[in-house]
Amino acid sequence: MLINITKSFLLVVFTLFTVACSDNNTPELGKQYSVLPNDLSSLKLAPITEVFSLTCGHCRNMEASLPEIESLTNQKIGKVHVTFNQSAQVSAMLYYAAVMQLDKQPDHDLMAALFEVVQQQEGTMEQKQARIEEVFVSRGLISPYNFDNSHVSDMEQHLTFADEVSRKADINSVPSFIINGKYLLISEGHKDIPDLAATINYLLSKSES
Rank of each mutant, 00 (worst) to 15 (best):
E126H: 10
V174S: 02
S209P: 04
Q119M: 10
V13M: 14
Q75C: 05
S205F: 02
H190M: 07
L114N: 08
D39I: 04
Y145F: 15
V35W: 03
K31P: 01
S205R: 11
N180T: 06
M155L: 15
L184V: 07
A130C: 10
S65I: 02
P144D: 12
P194L: 13
K128S: 13
F52P: 00
S22R: 14
A113L: 12
S87C: 05
L204E: 04
S209H: 14
E188S: 15
L40S: 08
S153T: 15
M62V: 07
Q119V: 09
S65Y: 07
F9C: 01
F52I: 04
T160N: 12
Y202E: 13
L11M: 09
T55E: 14
V82K: 01
E116P: 00
V80Q: 00
K44Y: 05
V174R: 01
A113W: 02
N4K: 11
D39C: 06
L102C: 07
M62R: 13
S41E: 04
V90C: 05
K168M: 14
Q121Y: 10
K104L: 06
E126W: 08
N38Y: 13
M93Y: 04
Q120F: 12
D103M: 08
E134A: 15
S53R: 06
Q127N: 08
L102R: 04
F17K: 09
P47W: 07
S22A: 15
K44C: 02
I186F: 00
I132L: 13
T26K: 14
D109K: 10
S65V: 03
K44E: 11
S150Q: 15
S187I: 15
L72M: 12
S150L: 14
Q129F: 09
V90M: 13
Q120H: 12
V82E: 08
F177E: 06
G30I: 11
D107W: 01
T49Q: 03
